[in-house]
Design a protein around this nucleic acid. Structure first.
Length: 564
RNA sequence: UGCCUUAUGGUGUAACGGUAGCACAGCAGAUUCUGAAUCUGCUUGUCUAGGUUCAAAUCCUAGUGAGGCAACCA
């Protein structure tokens, strides 16, 4: 009894929800929602929210669910391309909204009715002021606002004007509908917030049916209520919108549920930027190849980079949930992928920067098959035959003509083990006229096969990977690195500065690598570990049958490189 | 010169008035046919000042730092 395992610590939101369930609030139901605006691609920060909302629903089954609702109230910024990508990304992360796919635009008629109701109650009015006047009369952070001259407009006139707004009698900006709350509130959101504006814009779902569109602050709480949402979870910047959220929920009659909003800190990650606007900027400026460029922190980008849904979900669990505006190290995300990929990825030999090695005492024309372990982490993973012959390639990193201290790979006169084959000794370094190494002449030791370490001989410390020159296949390999050179590019650029100046010029290096022939069978979207090098993913877009293209997901940890 | 939120090792978090713990990162060592993985150990922390209490990371007050707020964006 006493050594029962401690329950996993809950974050403040899960605690709150657990208390609601215990108190039988909403009959014990927990209904959450993920409410993206379809104005861009989802990024890793959204993954945090997706894992939270869908995760909470899963944890509270069976009296629970999570909706996917598109907050599509601003037609000028939104597009079906985004609604499609968002659904794909949420599914890829492993979550299912089943039949609960909604659009705020589906509620336009009901939202209009609620607005009429507010007008009837004297809680909303049509304002004729210009945008500039509204802004000026809102006051400032230090000073209260002043009421609009139209604030006391009679109900009947408001009803008439609002229906004529809907009918298209006015141009954009001529009139707005405002909630009548408190022009002197210290909370700017309560100073008679705009709840409807005129937009003669084509909507990606409702077409030209509407020329007035509700604002987020108005549509969101009421959409939540219409769907029976119990817990509306959003990021910290909406914290001071909460009184408005509650004002609406309490002011509108006939709502099927009374949800409440709670806020948590959004994810910030080092060496990247996380705003849709800035990511869109990178795409538009051609600084990346698109939203799914493997260097982007978008879900589609990291998917193409080779991250797994499991790794992303585990990352989202690991970072926790608080109200503190924190900055998470990229290293933690990388740790999460390595952890997953180490367990599950097929090992393969790949030489990124080849140096030719000739085994002078190996018979010409002879080819033998060496059995390589597919995945040492998986005892039932089996082996595969890989050809070995007289001429090989090894990685340039694995040879040093004048070695630094503690280098225990191949050096002139030194010995190294070719993994799963035998040890070789470097007898000569051949160079071209410019002094570049073209070839290493080595001899192999037949007595060291299969890992045998002959007694009485100095221990061979280094073990390196290799491929047979005649059998290796040339494959395009893309080495991706962090997008920015600064941990906090926006911070480094300052208010006025341009964060793109900190883009990492070495964030992509394209190599023609020599890989073991088995990779030709790789299908697009497959994860590999190039032994001793890193984790690689066959690019789902650019790979062709028999001609894979590899994206480096993340390098293996390299404690030797660090020591240098 | 306002209002709201927030502050625990380098980073992210836990501790719900009673032994400051975990993960990442870092550093050592063991192990290793991947300088990976694995295992062991170590370094490093309660923003400051008061107060309440037998006892404060935790409650209160003030200060300081950080984030947010004046789109007809979300």
């Amino acid at each position: 009894m006493s050594d029962a395992p401690a329950p996993a610590p809950k974050d403040f939101i899960r605690e709150l929800i657990a208390a609601d369930v215990a108190a039988q609030r909403n009959d014990g139901w927990v209904i959450t929602r993920f409410p993206p605006e379809p104005n861009g691609y989802l990024h890793i920060g959204h993954a945090k929210s997706i894992c939270l909302n869908f995760g909470i629903a899963l944890e509270n089954a069976p009296k629970s669910r999570c909706h996917l609702r598109f907050d599509d109230t601003n037609p000028v910024k939104e597009d079906v391309e985004y609604v499609n990508s968002i659904q794909e990304d949420v599914r890829w992360l492993g979550f299912d909204w089943s039949q609960h796919l909604y659009f705020a635009s589906d509620y336009f008629e009901k939202l209009y009715g609620f607005a009429l109701q507010l007008i009837e109650k004297g809680l909303a009015y049509v304002d004729d002021q210009t945008l500039e006047q509204v802004r000026a009369n809102r006051g400032s952070l230090m000073h209260p606002g002043t009421p609009s001259p139209f604030r006391e407009r009679p109900v009947a006139e408001n009803v008439d004007l609002f229906s004529r707004m809907r009918a298209g009698e006015f141009k954009a900006g001529e009139k707005i509908l405002r909630a009548k709350i408190d022009m002197s509130s210290p909370n700017m959101n309560l100073r008679d917030p705009v709840i409807y504006r005129i937009l003669h814009a084509h909507h990606h779902r409702t077409g030209d049916a509407w020329c007035i569109y509700p604002m987020y602050d108005y549509a969101h709480p009421l959409s939540d209520a219409l769907e029976g949402i119990t817990h509306s979870l959003c990021t910290l910047e909406f914290e001071h919108h909460r009184p408005l959220y509650e004002w609406l929920i309490n002011s509108v009659d006939g709502l099927p549920s009374h949800p409440y909003q709670r806020e948590f800190a959004r994810l910030n990650l080092t060496y990247t930027v996380m705003s849709k606007r800035k990511l869109l900027g990178l795409v538009k400026a051609g600084l990346v190849s698109g939203w799914d460029d493997p260097r982007m922190p978008t879900i589609s980008g990291i998917r193409r980079r080779g991250y797994t849904p499991h790794a992303v979900r585990h990352f989202c669990e690991t970072i926790g949930l608080t109200k503190f505006a924190s900055l998470t190290e990229l290293a933690l995300l990388e740790h999460c992928v390595r952890e997953d990929l180490n367990k599950h990825s097929q090992r393969v030999y790949g030489v990124l920067r080849p140096i030719k090695v000739v085994l002078t005492n190996y018979p010409e024309g002879q080819v033998e098959q060496i059995e390589l372990v597919n995945n040492p982490e998986n005892p039932t993973g089996g082996t595969r035959p890989v050809p070995l012959s007289r001429e090989l390639y090894i990685d340039a990193d694995d040879f040093m003509e004048t070695p630094v201290a503690d280098f225990h790979r191949l050096v002139p006169g030194g010995e190294v083990r070719l993994k799963y084959a035998f040890c070789i000794t470097c007898d000569a370094v051949i160079k071209d006229a410019e002094g570049r190494i073209t070839e290493l002449r080595c001899t192999y030791d037949d007595a060291t096969r299969r890992g045998v370490k002959p007694v009485g001989r100095p221990k061979v410390k280094g073990t390196i990977h290799w491929v047979s020159a005649a059998h290796a296949v040339d494959v395009e390999v893309r080495l991706y690195d962090k997008l920015f050179v600064e941990a906090q590019p926006e911070e480094a650029a300052g208010e006025e500065g341009d964060f793109t100046q900190f883009l990492n010029p070495a964030s992509l290096e394209i190599l023609n690598a020599k890989l073991e022939p088995s990779v030709l069978a790789a299908s697009p979207g497959a994860h590999y570990q190039f032994e001793r090098v890193g984790y690689f993913f066959t690019d789902p877009k650019d790979s062709q049958p028999g001609r894979p293209v590899f994206n480096r997901t993340v390098a293996l940890k390299d404690s030797f490189a660090k020591a240098k």
